[in-house]
């Protein structure tokens, strides 16, 4: 291809100045953009209103198409489900009978737990649902793992609130519009969830790896406590996430890194439940928090 001729403005002074001025504007624009980027990175609250409005405008578009996508993928599952029906039925019947025994045990334990908590006078903070919403889209072309849900400030959604599905934890709210909000998924590298092993209560920190998996770091130094197939639930430490929400299942264990898969796959869940922050003081700035919050209650021994 021959070189484009128009880049060289020739001998016209006016054209030369025009080109030069164009570069001045471009460099100025880059500086402005870098400044905005710096503001966004350093406090993350710049443009909240504008970004909320953009969310509001775009979420309905995604929501409309989402049902179509769900219909198509659901159709595939229907067909495969048909062929595996008999085997699946047998398997499920067997599981059901096993689970019913466990359910009775669990009810008894729950009752006992409630009594014990009453004896300890632990105030169980409000963990009721604020609203339910649908996951309508997610970031797919950047290293961040963010999803959009179709509920916003109108329904009482606020920044910091935990989002879960019946299957497990999805993440927490980082941006809100009037009708839509953005969720930081548990698989994002910026999301650290305090968890504990269901099996023996070992505390750990679950950090996203950005590729749909979660890395687990035990809080105690020593032998790697995780085994393949272990299930982790939130511990309630930190005050954002309520305790006891399933988070992930361990899929591979090496000497010092453990990889888990989130139990709630955002691409398959139907509804997300937005909950209150477990301990509201956890979301306050550090200066004001101690003034109004009583010393945090000691975690109940499990």
């Amino acid at each position: 291809m021959a070189p484009p001729k128009t880049r060289r403005p020739g001998f016209s002074r006016r054209a030369q100045y025009g080109l030069f001025f164009g570069y001045v504007v471009a460099v100025g624009g880059v500086l402005l953009a870098l400044l905005l980027l710096f503001l966004a990175v350093s406090d993350r609250l710049g443009f909240t209103g504008l970004r909320g409005a953009a969310l509001d405008l775009t979420a309905p578009v995604s929501a409309g198409g989402r049902s179509a996508v769900r219909f198509v993928t659901g159709g595939g599952e229907l067909v495969t489900g048909y062929f595996g029906a008999a085997a699946r039925n047998r398997e499920l019947t067997r599981q059901l009978s096993a689970i019913q025994h466990r359910l009775i045990e669990a009810r008894a334990i729950e009752l006992e737990n409630r009594q014990l908590k009453r004896m300890l006078k632990l105030n169980s903070a409000a963990t009721d649902a604020i609203t339910t919403a649908r996951v309508v889209s997610s970031s797919f072309d950047s290293s961040r793992r963010l999803a959009t849900i179709d509920a916003g400030r109108r329904k009482g959604v606020e920044v910091g609130q935990p989002v879960r599905a019946p299957e497990g934890l999805i993440g927490r709210i980082i941006e809100t519009g009037l009708f839509a909000s953005r969720v930081l998924l548990v698989t994002d590298g910026a999301n650290n969830v305090p968890v504990r092993l269901v099996r023996d209560g070992t505390p750990a920190l679950a950090t996203g790896r950005g590729d749909g998996t979660i890395e687990l770091k035990p809080l105690e130094v020593g032998k790697n406590p995780f085994k393949r197939g272990d299930i982790l639930v939130t511990s309630g430490v930190g005050g954002i996430y309520p305790p006891g929400v399933p988070v992930a299942i361990v899929v591979s264990v090496n000497r010092d890194d453990t990889v888990a898969r989130p139990l709630a796959d955002p691409s398959r869940i139907d509804f997300a439940i937005v909950q209150n922050i477990y301990e509201p003081a956890a979301n306050q700035p550090l200066v004001t928090a101690p003034a109004q919050a009583p010393p945090p209650a000691v975690e109940a021994p499990q």
Binding site: S62, A63, G65, S137, S138, S139, F140, A147, G212, D265
Partner: peptide, 18 residues
């Protein structure tokens, strides 16, 4: 740009930035 609004929910970055 608005292709990013496609109702696709994926768990790792695989799609190019169109």
């Amino acid at each position: 740009c608005s292709l990013g609004l496609l109702p696709i929910v994926v768990s790792s970055p695989v799609v190019p930035d169109f």
